[in-house]
């Protein structure tokens, strides 16, 4: 099946936002990250091969922009409190799983960077292990151990939140 460039880009824009949200943990920073990725992609469009993988290319640029930004302390992750405000503002309150969704994203935002990256690429974006390892430039074994640790940490964190906030269950 062949998708037009327009379709591919529309799909990738949403994927880029998801990945940017996972990395930046803040809606404004995530949007900045996506915009800067697009700017760099425009500037370097000639490096994209005609039959290349658009998602890998764009994710690679976004990853580099994020890593460089963190290194220069220009893109600051504002932490779990900011993502809490973001989820309240973004998710409709009548969503059946609203509270659980919010708590999952909050718990996710407390995970270390490398676990969030791997979880997003594999569990959210559905990349194969090979593709995700190549994208992050890490060995396959490292990717698998980060994935397992990330899932387990998220499960434990959700368990803690369940025990700490039993009253929230009643809202569902």
């Amino acid at each position: 099946m062949t998708f037009s460039l327009r379709d591919q880009l529309s799909n990738q824009l949403r994927s880029l936002r998801r990945y940017a949200l996972a990395l930046a943990r803040n809606r404004d920073d995530a949007e900045d990250l996506v915009q800067e990725t697009l700017v760099r992609a425009i500037s370097g469009s000639r490096t994209f091969r005609p039959n290349g993988d658009l998602r890998s290319w764009l994710f690679g640029i976004l990853h580099n922009v994020h890593v460089n930004g963190v290194r220069r302390e220009q893109v600051r992750a504002r932490g779990a409190s900011a993502i809490e405000a973001m989820t309240y503002g973004q998710m409709p309150p009548n969503q059946p799983d609203h509270v659980e969704l919010m708590r999952t994203i909050e718990a996710f935002s407390t995970l270390p960077d490398e676990q969030r990256r791997v979880l997003t690429l594999v569990a959210v974006e559905g990349m194969s292990y090979q593709e995700a390892a190549r994208q992050l430039d890490i060995p396959l074994g490292t990717l698998m151990s980060r994935l397992a640790r990330g899932r387990e940490a998220l499960r434990v964190e959700m368990g803690h939140r369940d025990r700490a906030q039993p009253a929230l269950r009643a809202v569902r």
Partner: peptide, 27 residues
């Protein structure tokens, strides 16, 4: 957990920011 994560991030990503759309159009 995976379903919740996908749904949560996807809902937050479902926004349309004019500047971003402009840049995507340019790309």
């Amino acid at each position: 957990q995976q379903d919740m994560l996908r749904l949560g991030l996807d809902m937050m990503a479902a926004v349309s920011v004019k500047e971003t759309e402009t840049l995507a159009g340019r790309l």
